[in-house]
Structures are given as structure tokens and as C-alpha cells.
Design a protein around this nucleic acid. Structure first.
Length: 274
DNA sequence: AACGATCCCTGTTGGC
DNA sequence: TGCCAACAGGGATCGT
């Protein structure tokens, strides 16, 4: 699944290709991918002819500012990836963007949970970025800020981690890994954490994400996340909680358990996490 | 307001 | 072997 590390690796790979490039042509093969594009001028007409100024990221959103002030936004959803020419083909190519004198950029997304749009800054803030908190890697909130965000909340801690408002960029896999590292149970009411636990949570976020980055991200299977050049990430084999139900905890040896929190799987060590 | 359930979508998996 | 239901999940939306 593309979560923060996978999106960041995509950004790093594409930045030198996209920066300064002019969009020569754009083709949308699956209209659902444009469901976040507001009424008015269409995605292709807003993108073609524009020069891409930068390759940024906020949470799981890829943001490509254009020379007219608008921003080309890409969210990879659950099964999306951006592939450069030749690294992908087949029935799941949803959007193709041709760069002048450069490669085609393919937005591949079998399950079409991803989307793309060309938006003004205002439209971005009112739309895809509306509920986005500080980036979990670049803008890690302080203990006080986290405490304020969790105070009084009865929702399971894991649900709060997934809703993007406190740590933008965590998804189901890295949320489990962060909770494992912080030794906190996923179904703990978010507001029940004492200060030392909040500090442990905060301390866990960056190392987990950086470990994911260092190992090329997590590729669950052939259809999930791949780097834009087609390579798979190696972090899967280093996961300590996610997907390891029944396997021994890498810290204490107890069997990792799987439960469901908010209709989503959650994995934890019943001995290490409290 | 906060929270939980449902839905979207399709490739893969497991049961019969 | 073949068929089909269940499952996976980010985030919008809706009901409580």
C-alpha cells in the first residue's frame, strides 16, 4: 500500500524528471480517477502546456505545483503507482501524461481508489487537503500538540492515527508498526494515553517511517506498490506487526494477534503493547 | 462534534 | 478443476 514512505520514495524518484518539465499531452482512460476535479475547465486542458515547478508531498498527497499557480495533485489510493515509460503497461493504466522531450508518466491503479486533479491552492485546501494535519515525517507535532489532539477522544488510538488529522501520511501498515514500536495497543481510547505514552508514540513515528524509506517501502504483492522504475520495496520482510498474526513477536516471542479496529485489520503483540 | 458503519473497486485467496 | 464469496484498504459520506 502506498503510505508516506512509498509516496515519498515516488516523489524522490520523480522529482528530477518532473522539475522543469512541460506537459505535452494528457490522456485519461478512466474517468473515475478525476472524481476530485471540480467542475469547470477539465483536467487535461488545465495540465497540457504547463511547466511543472516542483515535486512536493504532504501526507500521502503528491503535489506538483505548475507555472500558472495551480497544483497537479495525485493520490495513489490503495493500489496506485506512478510509473515512468516502459516500467508499466497493461489494462490498469488510468492516466497518461506525456512530458515534452521526456518519458510518459503512467498512473497505474487497478482498484481506482487513487485520484488526480489540477486544483488552485484554495481548491486543494477545501478538498483533498481539508482534513490533513501536519506531515508525519516533516512536521512531526510536539507532545503538547499531540496531547491536545487526543484529549477527550474515545475513538481507538489506531483510528485516530489513520484519520490523517494528527500524523498525516500513516496508513494501516505503518500505523501498526508505530503502535508496536510505541508499545501501545491499537484499541486504546485515544484520550486515555498518559503523557509518557504520548511521548513514546511521538518517538516511534519517525524511526518507523525512516526505516520504511531506507528499505524501499513496503510491497505487499505484485499488484501493490512498486517504485516508479518497477522495483519492489523490501520493507515487507522487516515488518514487526502488520501481517504477522500467529508469528512470534520479534521482541518477546509471543504470538502476534490480529483484530479488527474500525473495519480495518490491526496487528499487535499482546505482551509488549499496553 | 464525534464516532462508527457503509460504500466504492478489482485482483487474489480460500472454501467447497 | 471451477466457481464464488470473502477479503484487502483510503477516504468520502451518511446516520446516530
Amino acid at each position: 500500500m502506498p503510505e508516506l514512505p512509498e509516496v515519498e520514495l515516488t516523489r524522490r524518484h520523480l522529482a528530477p524528471i518532473l522539475r522543469g518539465a512541460v506537459v505535452e499531452h494528457a490522456e485519461v482512460r478512466h474517468e473515475r480517477m478525476l472524481r476530485r476535479q471540480p467542475p469547470g475547465p477539465g483536467f487535461c486542458s488545465l495540465l497540457v502546456g504547463r511547466r511543472i515547478e516542483a515535486a512536493d508531498r504532504r501526507g500521502k498527497l503528491l503535489l506538483f505545483p505548475l507555472d500558472d499557480g495551480r497544483i497537479w495533485v495525485v493520490h495513489l489510493g490503495m493500489s496506485g503507482r506512478l510509473a515512468v515509460d516502459g516500467a508499466a503497461a497493461g489494462p490498469h493504466v488510468r492516466v497518461v501524461v506525456r512530458l515534452r522531450g521526456g518519458p510518459d508518466l503512467l498512473f497505474v491503479d487497478p482498484r481506482t481508489f487513487g485520484f488526480t486533479a489540477v486544483l488552485t491552492a484554495e481548491q486543494l485546501q477545501a478538498g483533498p487537503a481539508a482534513h490533513l494535519g501536519p506531515d508525519a515525517l516533516e512536521e512531526l507535532p510536539t507532545v503538547d500538540e499531540i496531547a491536545g489532539a487526543l484529549a477527550g477522544r474515545g475513538a481507538p488510538l489506531k483510528a485516530v492515527l489513520l484519520d490523517q488529522g494528527v500524523f498525516a501520511g500513516l496508513g494501516n501498515i505503518y500505523a501498526d508498526e508505530v503502535l508496536f514500536r510505541a508499545r501501545l495497543l491499537p484499541d486504546r481510547p485515544a484520550g486515555s494515553l498518559v503523557r509518557e505514552e504520548i511521548a513514546a508514540l511521538r518517538r516511534a513515528v519517525r524511526p518507523v517511517l525512516e526505516d520504511g524509506l531506507r528499505h524501499g517501502g513496503t510491497s505487499l504483492d505484485d499488484l501493490a506498490y512498486l517504485l516508479p522504475d518497477g522495483r519492489a520495496g523490501a520493507y515487507l520482510s522487516r515488518l514487526r506487526a502488520y501481517g504477522r498474526a500467529g508469528d512470534p513477536c520479534r521482541r518477546c516471542g509471543a504470538a502476534i494477534r490480529r483484530t479488527v479496529v474500525r473495519q480495518r485489520s490491526a496487528h499487535y503483540c499482546p505482551e509488549c503493547q499496553r
